[in-house]
């Protein structure tokens, strides 16, 4: 797959999971830029160009956000709620990628506007397969509206 500026925002606090996810992307030849935020605050700073990401070119928005739920400071669902509430990010494809299989989490995730909900399998082979399909779908097949300038 060609390396383009279509980035992936991975919000993941667990360094092991971060490493394994990147490995899975790599194994599946997904070369897109992966921006990693280690908690909800960092994710929001990146998305809205604040804090550590102050001055970031906001015309560049991730092609897809891979969002863990359980995060320090601001959790994944809250991140989802805020980006759906903001005009600039309200249409961004967001995939919840989490260990939880709680019915409650799934329902709340979709209610807040998640585009997909994927449970991380323990088996890495299965995980790698899931990541492959994710990349194929969200980075290749899926069409998104042109980002609107706020």
């Amino acid at each position: 797959m060609e390396d383009d500026q279509r980035t992936i925002l991975l919000v993941e606090d667990n360094p092991d999971d971060e490493l394994l996810t990147l490995r899975a992307l790599e194994e599946n030849k997904i070369k897109n830029t992966v921006v990693v935020a280690h908690d909800g605050v960092e994710a929001l700073e990146y998305l809205f160009g604040t804090g550590a990401y102050k001055g970031r070119d906001l015309s560049v928005m991730p092609q897809v956000i891979l969002l863990d739920i359980k995060l320090p400071r601001i959790d994944g669902l809250e991140v989802l709620r805020r980006l759906r509430a903001d005009q600039r990010t309200t249409l961004l494809p967001s995939v919840i990628l989490t260990s939880s299989r709680e019915e409650q989490d799934i329902i709340r995730g979709y209610k807040l506007g998640a585009n997909s909900y994927i449970r991380k399998p323990v088996d890495f082979d299965q995980f790698a397969e899931a990541v492959r399909q994710l990349g194929l779908y969200w980075l290749v097949l899926n069409e998104t509206p042109k980002p609107r300038r706020g």
Binding site: D16, R23, K120, V122, F124
Partner: peptide
């Protein structure tokens, strides 16, 4: 589950 994933991964 997270550590298990690490172990397996």
């Amino acid at each position: 589950r997270a550590p298990l994933r690490s172990i397996d991964g």
